[in-house]
Amino acid sequence: MGDAQRRYGGLAADSLGTDGDRPPLVLLHGLTYDRSQWGPTLGALATLDPDRRVLALDLPGHGGSPARDAYGARDVTDVIHEAVTDAGLDRPVMVGHSLGGAMATIYAARYPSRGVVNVDQPLTLGPFGGFLRRNEPVLRSPEYLRVWGSLLDGMGIDGLPPAAQELVRTATTPRQDLLLGYWNDILVTTDEAFTEQRRRDLERIRSLGIPYHYVTGRDPSPAYRAWLESALPDVTVDVLPGGGGHFPHLADPAALARIIAGIGTDSAGAR
């Protein structure tokens, strides 16, 4: 699969493959990372589904993409849509890890899409919202990396293969402006309002018949699974056998590639 590093809608990107009868894929990485995190998945996909059209983007402020004054979810998904449009993609399958999973979900609720693959991004805040708000003074101080480090400790990085561990630990830029910017929606919104907005996004996706996969390396809690299925009864929950904590796409990229290759290849989700 050939590739070319380009810019679409102002965002740095790897543009792979050629247009064909299979829906194109758009890959969105997690907070503080960049499109290089998709390398193992793209390698597996190249074997499974050669020459599939793929656009792997650096989110605003990440990798080679320019910073912005604000990183609200609607603004960021608008920029992503500019890149999708500039690349000439028609109703892509949106694939995102962590923050990227949230952006893929919000994108599909707002713009034409043929599927969503959300890799380990719960759409309710749970304890996370309270944790961020309690630590907001630290996040705004020179000690902000203490907050980021405490989150990394719970992501299961030590269970990844050595090369994947290296990628997670080195290909990251935990800048203060990114953490505060992308988490601002959480800091200024109540848990109830935040969760209700995500529910509306899922109900919109349901109404459009867009296939939705929630991919994780560990079984979701019964409470979260019940919430997810109440908003989106047809959701597919994929627990990858390789585990990988918060990074199942790096623990078992071949399994994720199989999921991605299969979603959105029929008429479901066309609009």
Rank of each mutant, 00 (worst) to 15 (best):
residue 246 H to M: 00
residue 214 Y to C: 03
residue 65 S to E: 08
residue 9 G to Q: 07
residue 13 A to D: 08
residue 90 D to W: 01
residue 198 R to Y: 13
residue 88 G to K: 13
residue 167 L to Q: 05
residue 184 N to M: 11
residue 138 V to H: 08
residue 144 Y to T: 01
residue 214 Y to M: 05
residue 226 A to E: 15
residue 115 G to S: 01
residue 45 L to D: 03
residue 122 P to G: 06
residue 120 D to H: 06
residue 102 A to V: 10
residue 147 V to S: 05
residue 155 M to D: 06
residue 216 T to P: 09
residue 81 H to M: 05
residue 148 W to S: 02
residue 243 G to D: 03
residue 36 S to R: 15
residue 89 L to M: 12
residue 255 A to S: 15
residue 140 R to T: 00
residue 64 G to L: 13
residue 207 S to T: 09
residue 22 R to H: 14
residue 263 I to G: 06
residue 207 S to Q: 13
residue 70 A to S: 14
residue 184 N to D: 15
residue 126 G to N: 07
residue 181 G to V: 05
residue 177 D to V: 10
residue 7 R to H: 15
residue 47 T to L: 11
residue 190 T to D: 10
residue 121 Q to M: 15
residue 1 M to A: 11
residue 175 R to M: 01
residue 82 E to W: 09
residue 57 L to H: 10
residue 270 A to Y: 15
residue 34 D to F: 00
residue 7 R to Q: 12
residue 17 G to N: 08
residue 121 Q to W: 01
residue 204 R to V: 08
residue 10 G to D: 07
residue 7 R to L: 00
residue 168 V to I: 08
residue 189 T to M: 04
residue 117 V to E: 13
residue 10 G to K: 14
residue 195 T to K: 04
residue 46 A to K: 08
residue 253 P to G: 03
residue 237 V to T: 13
residue 140 R to E: 06
residue 15 S to T: 09
residue 247 F to S: 04
residue 124 T to P: 02
residue 70 A to C: 09
residue 119 V to M: 06
residue 233 P to C: 07
residue 184 N to G: 08
residue 53 R to G: 02
